[in-house]
Design a protein around this nucleic acid. Structure first.
Length: 507
DNA sequence: AACTGCGGGGTTT
DNA sequence: AAACCCCGCAGTT
């Protein structure tokens, strides 16, 4: 990726890190030479400089559920992470994944959200708070200065990624379109082509169609998981519509499967059902289908869930991986690998670390979150707990290595939006692995992605996701993906190798 | 209905 | 003093 780095001079995670500035500096760098591409999933102690024209930066957007936090500084906007909402029972979705909802930003809405039941097992939903910054939520700071928007993140998210805002919005809009389509005669139009697309999954990134046509999701199972999907087939249009509405009502409460890893086949080596049942995380008393189907009337969400089941199929490899992870509870190679990765990168613990330290996925600790800070985080966190310059000093060294560390972190954890997922997905496909690890909880990619040629290349070549800087089109907007950085390749490879072995063992 | 930003206010270190 | 958090308000989406 070195070449890439040069190519993408304004590569996201690089320059911002290199610059010696702190969000609290009285004077920010003037006329920055480089600007970073918008990073939707900043993680770790990173800093970026965006162009003042960058809309997402202007909106202070983030894939993480960040809420405004008053820092009593009118010039610096501070936001803290709300974490992620999961099933209190840590139930496994049809595809083995876990529910990872985006916490509502509004307190009121969040409370309301938490009162809802898990669409899968009806257990309570649980909000996993973010404690990635010295036990406190990860904080993001935004500062507009001149023609640049400075961004600084502090802390390493120690929880899965929730559905991103963009995903939520995209899904909602898709649902709306879907709803609209139901009113139209065309809705009856033949969808074979689309269905085929989904099934094929060759077009890993052709998820949108599915989204727009919930019914199609139901079809997807056909290819792999007949059970969950079945119900939908029987849906009268009216029902389907209803379900769609419910889904919409659920608003982003459900992590759209399609948003995760589009290619189910990869992550579902075994028949969904058996797999699911066998999974340790499976807490349901009975088969999904019967339960869900029957109860359709009992709980509003059930209806949604019918769809979800189908939808979730595509969901993630992450879940699959988790499961495998769980099975091998000891995770011999797992943690070590992660830990190793973290070594020497004290400042940039990407999601790797977060994932590694994630007790949340342990069946035995359902949804319980360890308040324990990430292993490597503490030192840093103790130092960097505020926006003070003092902390910055400690931080700097790593910054210098930003290309290596940050890239690794960001590329793996979050700087990418779809690229990340996409890439990861790809990776998984090729390796049939837990790319999910890096992906952590992020169900991102989902909409029709415009995969750069190199991305595909990567897909087969594997190595580096970072290489691709795919952008997805959401309406008129285009999401920039954090470019990967040089050195990431190496780090990534190193980290991955362990997984390979692990994975193979597991499967 | 939610999101978002602002700002008052309280607590802790 | 500097962080943190909570809460409510008001404008926007």
């Amino acid at each position: 990726m070195p070449a890439e780095a040069g190519q993408q001079a304004d590569g996201a995670c690089s320059h911002g890190m290199k610059l010696s500035w702190d969000i609290n500096d009285p004077q920010m760098p003037r006329e920055p030479d480089h600007f970073d591409r918008f990073c939707e999933w900043p993680d770790g102690y990173v800093r970026f400089i965006y162009r003042s024209g960058e809309k997402k930066a202007q909106r202070h957007l983030s894939g993480w559920a960040m809420r405004n936090t008053n820092n009593h500084n009118g010039h610096i906007l501070k936001k803290s992470c709300l974490g992620v909402v999961v099933c209190a029972r840590d139930c496994a979705l049809p595809d083995g994944s876990r529910l990872q909802l985006r916490p509502a930003i509004c307190d009121k809405a969040r409370l309301k959200q938490q009162k809802k039941a898990c669409p899968n097992c009806h257990a309570a939903l649980e909000l996993i708070p973010c404690r990635g910054h010295s036990g406190y939520p990860v904080t993001n700071f935004w500062r507009l200065d001149g023609n640049a928007i400075f961004f600084q993140a502090k802390g390493v998210h120690d929880h899965p990624r929730p559905e991103s805002k963009s995903e939520t919005e995209a899904r909602r809009s898709a649902i709306k379109r879907q709803m609209a389509s139901f009113y139209q005669p065309q809705k009856k139009r033949i969808r074979e082509p689309e269905a085929g697309e989904n099934q094929d999954n060759g077009g890993h990134f052709s998820n949108i169609p599915s989204l727009e046509n919930p019914e199609e999701f139901d079809i997807i199972p056909d290819t792999g998981f007949p059970v969950p999907g079945q119900p939908c087939f029987s849906f009268p249009n009216s029902d389907a519509y209803k379900a769609t509405c419910d889904l919409a009502a659920f608003q982003g409460d459900i992590v759209p499967p399609f948003q995760k890893y589009p290619n189910p086949r990869i992550f579902l080596p075994r028949p969904p059902c058996s797999y699911e049942l066998a999974g340790p995380g499976y807490t349901n008393s009975g088969p999904y289908y019967p339960t869900l189907y029957k109860d359709a009337s009992s709980i509003p969400d059930d209806t949604d869930w019918v769809h979800l089941n189908a939808l979730q199929y595509n969901i993630n490899s992450y879940g699959s991986f988790e499961r495998s992870f769980d099975f091998t509870s000891k995770q011999p190679g797992w943690k070590p690998a992660l830990g190793k990765a973290d070594l020497g990168e004290s400042t940039d613990h990407g999601q790797f670390q977060a994932v590694a330290a994630r007790p949340y996925y342990n069946p035995e600790l359902p949804c319980r979150y360890l308040t324990t800070a990430p292993p490597s985080a503490p030192a840093l966190q103790t130092v960097i707990t505020t926006t003070t310059k003092v902390s910055y000093q400690a931080y700097q060294p790593p910054a210098l290595k930003c290309c290596d560390n940050v890239r690794e972190v960001t590329s793996l954890s979050g700087c990418n939006y779809d690229s990340e997922n996409t890439q990861m997905s790809i990776y998984l496909e090729d390796l049939d692995l837990p790319a999910t690890v890096a992906m952590a909880a992020s169900p991102t990619a989902s909409l029709p992605l415009k995969i750069p040629g190199d991305c595909r290349t990567i897909r087969h070549t594997l190595p580096f996701p970072q290489d691709s800087a795919p952008s997805w089109t959401d309406g008129a907007e285009t999401w920039d993906v954090c470019p990967s950085g040089p050195g990431s390749t190496i780090g990534y490879s190193e980290r991955i190798s362990p997984f390979f072995s692990y994975d193979h063992e597991d499967f």
